[in-house]
């Protein structure tokens, strides 16, 4: 088994919510301006950079550098209403479902 590239890709989580899906990614130490998120042809891409602080490290486990991760979105995703928030080193991209994709009750006439 080859060694994992365990830290060069920020860990992500995909979670179903009442309104759709959330993509959650851990980007500790990135600043708001270092992160870009865009959607093209149903593929959501998050790119950014973790910048190394200055100074000589005597003990080093953290990994710094650029990263890119892409996620193929469901056809039910409402691409115009995607929102993202970054706080405490975690980015949360909220991807709501289209109203037409939500389950609804049909009244019997």
């Amino acid at each position: 088994m080859t060694a994992y590239c365990k830290t060069c890709l920020p860990p992500a989580e995909i979670k179903q919510t009442d309104n759709g899906f959330n993509i959650i990614m851990e980007l500790p130490g990135s600043s708001h301006d270092d992160i870009k998120i865009w959607q093209e042809k149903g593929i959501l891409t998050i790119t950014g950079e973790k910048k190394a602080p200055s100074g000589e490290r005597v003990f080093s486990e953290r990994v710094f550098g650029k990263f890119t991760r892409s996620f193929r979105l469901s056809e039910d995703a409402d691409l115009d209403r995607i929102e993202a928030n970054y706080s405490d080193g975690v980015i949360i991209v909220e991807i709501p479902e289209k109203e037409s994709a939500k389950p609804r009750n049909i009244t019997i006439k």
Binding site: E26, G29, E56, V58
Partner: peptide, 16 residues
Amino acid sequence: DIVDEKDKLTLTAEIP
């Protein structure tokens, strides 16, 4: 990470 400087040590831990 730990950075050793002349007058201080700085420890940074990623806990997002």
